[in-house]
Amino acid sequence: MGISSKLLNEGERVLVSMRQHPKALFPAIFALIVLLAVGVAVQVLVDVAAVTLVVWILVALAICWWTLRPVLLWATAVHAVTDRRIITRWGIVTRRGHDIPLRRVSDISIEINLIDRPFGCGTLIITNASTDGNVHLHDIPRVEQTKLLIHNLVNDLPESAPRLDDGA
């Protein structure tokens, strides 16, 4: 799922479209394994069919909440960098979004922890000049290249264009 062309202004181009690195699904996969292990353990150890049925119903509900929901959120979330702004969209039933015009970006930083390094992903932290403060985009693939792209776009804005961080 990429950014819909309906979201773009006339003449605006998508330079990078991405979703979170699949590493973000590790907790959901771990929850699935633990929940299935609990269900199987109860089925093997308990001879009462009603108890086993109740446990499997609870396991199914827990799988929906701790596995299916995070996977759907991951699948519906998308981040894009255009030549004018940074776009984020996410949500299963209710779609949410955040757009940051490049003119409002005052600082870009990254965080790459020990677990992120082998996967080549990290957190992109964008500080904008409005009252929103920092926007954290977690588990961004190729985070260093994305930071460099945004940095180059912000620095290549025409000087005649007003920027909030320049006091205009």
Rank of each mutant, 00 (worst) to 15 (best):
M1D: 09
G2L: 10
I3E: 04
S4W: 11
L8H: 04
G11F: 05
E12H: 03
S17C: 11
Q20C: 11
P22R: 04
K23D: 07
L25Q: 00
F26R: 10
F26W: 15
F26P: 06
F26Q: 10
A28N: 03
F30A: 13
A31Q: 02
I33L: 10
I33K: 05
G39W: 00
Q43V: 07
V44P: 04
L45S: 10
D47G: 14
V48T: 11
V48M: 09
T52A: 11
L53N: 10
V55F: 03
I57Q: 08
L58M: 05
V59N: 00
V59R: 00
L61D: 07
L73T: 03
L73K: 03
T76I: 05
H79W: 12
A80P: 00
D83R: 00
R84C: 08
R84D: 05
I87K: 01
W90H: 08
V93F: 12
R96S: 15
P101Y: 05
L102A: 04
L102N: 01
R104H: 05
V105S: 02
S106R: 07
I108V: 15
S109T: 14
I110L: 12
L114A: 10
L114T: 09
L114N: 09
D116V: 11
F119E: 02
C121M: 08
C121K: 03
A129T: 15
S130G: 14
T131V: 14
T131K: 07
T131E: 10
D132A: 15
G133M: 01
N134V: 11
N134W: 09
H136V: 08
H136F: 15
H138V: 13
D139F: 15
I140E: 03
P141Q: 06
Q145T: 09
Q145F: 07
Q145R: 13
K147P: 02
L149Q: 05
V154Q: 00
D156K: 13
D156P: 08
L157I: 02
E159V: 12
A161P: 05
P162A: 06
R163G: 03
D166V: 07
A168S: 11
